[in-house]
């Protein structure tokens, strides 16, 4: 029997919740599984000003969500993304991607570098929030969550919806 031909219309595969049990694959250090994504992006040896992003993921009652996962994606200090479509090539092996589970208090933290100015576009870090029951929270061009540099005050900001961190205040000064 041959494999059936692909359907003519390529309709999107729907998302489903990441569930509460993702850690042993997606953030698996404690399970002895090889880990490839971390919350410390400075280990990739990039140059630039150090940046720490801290936050908490809370539900509508303000209760911590202890089984969420946050991902960030950003340019290097020169405003280059480690991706072929980036107008400038990224240097020094900086991949610009980080992943962090929330802890019992709903808290997460990333150590990274200040992203540089990206040609034509505002410079920023972008974040996806994954949390039971949610699929990836970030939608194109939509956001209600905003992060702020930890140097102001480590703390949290109420996430009243998808956390699509997409604000330009982190321009390189």
């Amino acid at each position: 029997m041959m494999t059936e031909p692909l359907p003519p219309a390529h309709e999107l595969t729907p998302s489903q919740t990441v569930g509460p049990f993702f850690h042993f694959m997606l953030t698996p250090k404690a399970y002895g599984v090889r880990e490839i994504f971390m919350a410390d992006l400075t280990q990739e040896g990039p140059g630039g000003d150090r940046l720490r992003i801290e936050g908490r993921v809370l539900d509508a009652d303000g209760a911590p969500i202890p089984d969420a996962m946050v991902e960030i994606w950003q340019a290097d200090a020169n405003g280059a993304y480690a991706h072929p479509a980036s107008p400038k090539p990224a240097v020094n092996g900086f991949r610009g991607f980080g992943r962090c589970p929330t802890d019992a208090h709903g808290a997460f933290a990333f150590d990274t570098i200040m992203p540089g100015i990206v040609p034509t576009f505002p410079s920023s870090c972008h974040a996806d929030l994954f949390c039971r029951p949610r699929r990836p929270c970030r939608r194109p061009g939509s956001s209600t969550g905003a992060a702020r540099p930890a140097r102001h005050a480590p703390g949290s900001r109420r996430c009243e919806g998808p956390l699509g961190v997409h604000h330009p205040p982190w321009r390189r000064r």
Binding site: A75, Y81, F121, P122, S124, S142
Partner: peptide, 9 residues
Amino acid sequence: LILLPHSLT
């Protein structure tokens, strides 16, 4: 949801 400008992302 609030619409925000797109970027290279």
